[in-house]
Amino acid sequence: MIEILSQSAFASVQDLGRFDAVRWGVGTAGAMDRLALLAGNILLGNAEDAAGVEVQVFPFEVRFDADHAFAVTGADCAATLDGVPLLPWSSARACAGQVLRLGLPQAGRWRGARACLTIAGGVDVPVVLGSRSTQLRGAIGGHEGRMLRQGDRLAVGAASGAAIVAGVVPPGLALPLEADGLPAVRVLPASEHDAYTERSLARFWDEPWKITPQSDRYGYRLAGPGLEPKAPIEVRSHGIVPGVIQVPHSGQPIVQMCDGQPTGGYPKIGTVIEADLWRLGEMPIGTRFRFVRVEWDAALAAREARDGWVAEVRRVADLMRARRAA
């Protein structure tokens, strides 16, 4: 068991997401930084779809009720275990009664917004429609289908015993992506892209966008140059996925994120490619960033590079595990 000590937690149980329930009106939910969740699970010898706790408001504290190996990945939040500093993107071992504290995200060579706490054995909540992720609308999955709060106790699954104590070189350093000195995400144009004026498109691709405070796990509302269609666009409700960039009448785009509803009715100018969603998921409010246009082949290559990084982490972790077992 782990117990949530923080008063206003705004943390939630997430795994890689719920991916085949759009036809029932259920969105994906899931970790905003899936690389952080994967890295933690790999270090701990967990199944890669084991659930962790995504933390987005700091400080955050939990107490371990038993001895557990755990990892803190994602935002570098000056984590401590009973006051002893832990390294970012690293696993460690806790004894029963010890308190893990995640402090404010640090500005360093890479700055994240969300931290991921994984535990050897995984957070053991029931699998609902194929996932343990928290689906807020409809209150399913996760811990009672809601955000965590003080006093919540989360069960931990049986650990495989193959956890290693090690750190991962953060993907923000291993897979950097910038445009004109700003962090960037790659975008494939979507169906209404060409219905925007040339001036709007030039601005969309060439100017920075800022993540406004009205941004959360549902979606990121951006501020920047207004986008105008050549003529009013009619769109009928259709299924969408995280990453879709919708443009409401205000002309200020909204990027659909993990808790967004699974259907949309606004024009879509583009979609942040799946391989870069973790980058956006880690960008703090106020970040200025750029969209970089790619075509299908480049988007697939980005996906391969991301999967290659995960495979490399898994390979070296398995080597370390084998050596320690020898």
Binding site: F19, D20, R23, G239, P262, T263
Partner: peptide, 22 residues
Amino acid sequence: VREAAPGVNNLLLSFTEPPKRL
């Protein structure tokens, strides 16, 4: 195709793995 989800006069097809060519 991972899932075929009808919308209003449209259909979303999500991928298990994106195809090499669309």
